[in-house]
C-alpha cells in the first residue's frame, strides 16, 4: 500500500459518501445517471469475485464490501424508493449502456492477463469502469446545470483514478515485477474522459459560480 493508492481509495470512498448524502439528504436523484450506477455495481461485482477466495487484508475486504454494498444500495434506492425514483431524469438518462457492457466483455475476451474465468471478468470490470461514467457525463451535458453535490460526486469519482495512476507509476519504479498495463491504459482512458468535466468544474470553482456544462 502506498500513499497514492490510499488517497485514491479514500477519494473513491468520499465520492460514494457524497452520492449517498445527496440522495438521502435531498431525497432526490436528479442529475444522477441510474445507468452509470448500474454499471458501477456490475464493475464491483465482477471485479471482486475473489472476495471470499483471496484474502489480501482486512482493509481490502472491508473496502470491497463497502463498494459492492453502496453501489447496490444506490441502484435499489433509485429503482425502488417511492420518493427518490420520482426525481430520476428517466428521459435524459438514455445512453445505450448495454453497448458498453458488450464492448467491454468482447475486449476482455481478447485482451486479458490469463484466459481464465476470474481474469476475464477482472479485465471486463477494468474496461467497464473506464466507460461507466459516460452515461453520467451525457446526462449532465443534457441537463446543463450541475448541482453542487452531483458535481462533487463526479469530481471525486474522476480524481480517485488519477491517484491510482500515480500509484501505478510509483509501483513501477519501486517493484521489480510490477506490470499492470491493462489497468494503467484503462485508468488513463478513464481519467481522460473526465477531462472536459474537470475543466468546467475548475472554471466554476474559480469563478465561484454554479457549474454550467455547454449544451
Amino acid at each position: 500500500m502506498n500513499i497514492f493508492r490510499f488517497a485514491g481509495d479514500m477519494t473513491h470512498l468520499i465520492s460514494i459518501l457524497v452520492l449517498l448524502l445527496k440522495i438521502y439528504a435531498t431525497k432526490s436523484c436528479s442529475g444522477i445517471s441510474l445507468k452509470t450506477q448500474e454499471l458501477y455495481a456490475l464493475v464491483f461485482l465482477t471485479r471482486y469475485l475473489d472476495l471470499f477466495t483471496d484474502f489480501i487484508s482486512v482493509y481490502n475486504t472491508i473496502m470491497k464490501l463497502v463498494f459492492i454494498a453502496s453501489s447496490l444500495a444506490v441502484v435499489c434506492c433509485m429503482r425502488m424508493h417511492r420518493v427518490v425514483r420520482r426525481s430520476y431524469d428517466k428521459d435524459l438518462d438514455t445512453f445505450r449502456h448495454y453497448f458498453l457492457i458488450l464492448a467491454s466483455f468482447v475486449l476482455a475476451l481478447l485482451v486479458n492477463e490469463k484466459f481464465t474465468f476470474q481474469e476475464i471478468f477482472w479485465a471486463f470490470s477494468i474496461y467497464l469502469e473506464a466507460l461507466a461514467i459516460l452515461p453520467q457525463l451525457v446526462l449532465l451535458q443534457r441537463s446543463g446545470n450541475v448541482d453542487n453535490l452531483t458535481g462533487q460526486y463526479v469530481f471525486f469519482l474522476g480524481a480517485y483514478r488519477a491517484f491510482y495512476i500515480l500509484n501505478w507509476i510509483y509501483r513501477y519504479f519501486t517493484e521489480q515485477h510490477f506490470s499492470r498495463w491493462i489497468a494503467c491504459v484503462s485508468g488513463l482512458v478513464q481519467t481522460v474522459l473526465y477531462a472536459d468535466f474537470f475543466y468546467y468544474y475548475f472554471i466554476s470553482w474559480k469563478n465561484n459560480a454554479k457549474m454550467q456544462l455547454p449544451a
Binding site: 493508492r5 481509495d9 473513491h12 471485479r47 475473489d50 483471496d54 489480501i56 481490502n60 473496502m63 470491497k64 463498494f67 492477463e113 477482472w122 491510482y164 500509484n167 509501483r171 517493484e175 521489480q176 515485477h177 510490477f178 499492470r180 489497468a183
Partner: peptide, 10 residues
C-alpha cells in the same frame, strides 16, 4: 522481492 499478489488493488 516476493511477487506482488495478483490484483491486490481495489
Amino acid at each position: 522481492q516476493e511477487q506482488p499478489r495478483e490484483h491486490d488493488e481495489l
